[in-house]
Write a protein that binds this DNA or RNA. Structure first.
Lengths: 387, 387
DNA sequence: CTACGCTCGGAAAGCGCTTACCCTTATTCT
DNA sequence: AGAATAAGGGTAAGCGCTTTCCGAGCGTAG
């Protein structure tokens, strides 16, 4: 932009060497000549706002206003010079510095039990999608379903001063003992106290009191399972075996309970329930155990999650029994593998990605109300129905 | 501070109001009641190092030295007071502030195509595991296999000034055109120039030159596929169809090429190859296409990844053909769903979690050399063999 | 023509930490 | 005993930004 044309503005720099001197882009490392140039050692530093301001011949304040959304207007001429300089230097604002200065970080911390599990993978994808839209960054931590580990992580996470914390399958979805979410309530409160928002999957009734916090993404586990139970009964099944996690694990309890309600309402009976956890192996061993106790042909097995149901299927097969016509199986979640197995798995579809996205919204949108997440029964080949 | 009482122990503060005055914890904002309770205002701020130092009656420097690993020794008495104060205030160092001050962030940025895909999920798990061990934090971004998006993300990522950047399945594993990694080489160079390390899955021969950067995690795609091809030929298969991504996609090319080499060496022929991408749907449509052109019974289908093979299986089934005895299928990766499908999928196991872990190590360990990642052919029911 | 009221740069005070330096004591050496 | 040397606490100068003020320049109303 030719200096002459710069009427209202006509920034000083254009006039001469005053505050700007020769140092145009090139700057930084090299030439030990320029006194304003930072050293050039071990590793050149990325361009700073200071560099941009210098090259553009404006003050730091102006450069900041131009580059990082500010209310204040900046004259076109100045704005242009700054943008040009930034571009030339390949300037990118230092996130940490911005965070310290603003007193607020752009981080959303996501806590999952196991990122390799498709259930969490989908949720994570949804969260990431939302974060990307808003230019926020998401950090992930893995609890490995270990409470101690979870607490340690939570503690460490505070250091990130995240804007929000999303708890997916932490013990937060337990409803036993305290009646409060697992996850060291005090830790969570600390998050909320200093202004961060905590969003958990599953109910988390108390933490944060009536205050601003206390948001949770609830998936209609009971309702979906009930519909499934009813549907299975309608298909003619009369006896079912449940495979779930330990009592007290909310998700598991809701699903098992809902299923039983629906199945019984439809005229069936839940013979017994085998406990384990959320992993595939657990589903397999629970099923093996059940088989050892004897399972009549025509029995239906309800796995509290697809992953568990998949494990059960492999156990049934390993025992030489037939999945479908002999022993029917159904699960919950509709992870992608469910439609790939053969016979394909009957399940309840849960919009996990959407759930993750909503969790994100719950974190960032001041006014937020959960959109219901539609669960849907999907009948496939693993429950062909009896006669 | 108080000259008098300062024998090495008995810190001044204990003595009285001098530099410390009344301001005990209570400080900051509200509730003048409980002295140890942090404030309660617009939003109380989390305790700062300054608070700790004040309460402990020491200088910021001392508090910092005690709490955040420093070379300098601090007398036991002081150390204790500081620790006590920190504990009482529930102090956690502000990561962003530390990052700005230290000029180095504790972030490892992970870029994946799709975190819901088990392939990336496992890698992510491995990376997270490593990061956790070292107390680093990992941020994730999703490229959705879109080059533009990837470039935008890369640009934004620079703002995090991450210690390292792990590229999983970016176009970085393309070998076409430039001969250099996809991912805007200039962006990557920028990362390395200022000291960050870039690690990519797949070769990335040039970026960063002979310098420090240029590390990559290579999976023996060609070798594994070749072994698989040989094995399949040994099982009696004579004709194979390949399903892969577009030409130029390194991973796909290597696998397809390796497979062909082994299969042919074993006496077989690769009839043709159908192109698509890495998604399940793509595998399904490629297979549908193949079926439309006619597929002899006894033919073997090689999917360039399990996910693709799984898609192919569903297409075969949808076409009313039988997987296994009629049309055999094999894949690559051994994602968990592969052992769940029925017939279970023959594939090449790749230690993905370990690969992720190694990628992490490659980022943080100055001296690093890749441990070979053993790939192993796993024959399952989808390739029962002919005759 | 003065009095205001705006608009918009710039100076500078932080944000929460780290760290090079300075300096007081305590120790050790000659 | 006196000097040299550790030890270890405190001071203060940053790190890279943001943001509050301040004030100069200009337009409009009285």
């Amino acid at each position: 932009m030719n200096p002459e044309s710069l009427s209202p503005a006509e920034p000083a720099a254009a006039t001469g060497a005053s505050s700007r001197a020769e140092p145009t882009a090139a700057t930084r490392d090299a030439a030990p000549t320029d006194p304003t140039t930072p050293p050039a050692s071990p590793f050149p530093h990325a361009a700073t706002l200071h560099d941009v301001a210098r090259d553009a011949g404006v003050s730091l304040a102006t450069a900041s206003r131009v580059l990082n959304g500010s209310e204040r207007k900046v004259a076109e001429a100045f704005r242009e010079r700054v943008e040009r300089a930034a571009e030339a230097l390949g300037y990118t604002p230092n996130m940490s510095a911005q965070a310290t200065a603003r007193g607020r970080s752009p981080i959303i911390a996501l806590l999952v039990a196991d990122i390799a599990d498709p259930y969490f993978g989908q949720i994570a994808a949804g969260v990431a999608r939302g974060a990307d839209e808003r230019g926020l960054v998401v950090t992930i931590s893995i609890t490995e379903r270990d409470q101690d580990r979870e607490n340690r992580i939570l503690r460490a996470l505070r250091g990130q001063r995240p804007q929000g914390l999303i708890l997916a399958a932490s013990r937060a979805d337990r409803s036993d003992d305290t009646g409060v979410a697992g996850s060291a309530p005090s830790e969570l409160e600390a998050f909320e106290r200093y202004g961060g928002r905590v969003v958990a999957f599953g109910d988390r009734p108390d933490v944060g009191g009536e205050g601003r916090g206390a948001r949770s993404i609830v998936i209609d586990n009971a309702g979906g399972a009930e519909a499934l139970g009813r549907r299975m009964a309608a298909l003619g099944y009369r006896t079912a075996i449940g495979i779930g996690a330990a009592e007290g694990v909310r998700t598991s309890d809701d699903r098992l309970g809902g299923f039983a309600r629906g199945f019984v309402a439809g005229g069936g009976t839940v013979a017994r329930i085998h406990r384990g956890d959320f992993r595939r192996e657990s589903g397999a061993s629970a099923m093996t155990e059940a088989l050892a106790e004897g399972v009549e042909p025509g029995t239906l097995v309800f796995g509290m999650s697809d992953v568990v149901a998949l494990g059960a299927i492999s156990a049934i097969r390993a025992a030489g029994r037939q999945v479908g016509t002999d022993i029917a199986v159904c699960g919950f979640d509709d992870v992608s593998a469910s439609s790939d197995v053969s016979p394909s798995l009957t399940t309840v579809r849960v919009p996990l990605n959407e759930a993750g996205y909503q969790a994100f919204r719950a974190v960032v949108d001041e006014d937020w109300t959960q959109d219901p997440l539609p669960v849907e029964v999907i009948v496939r080949d693993s429950t062909p129905g009896v006669a």
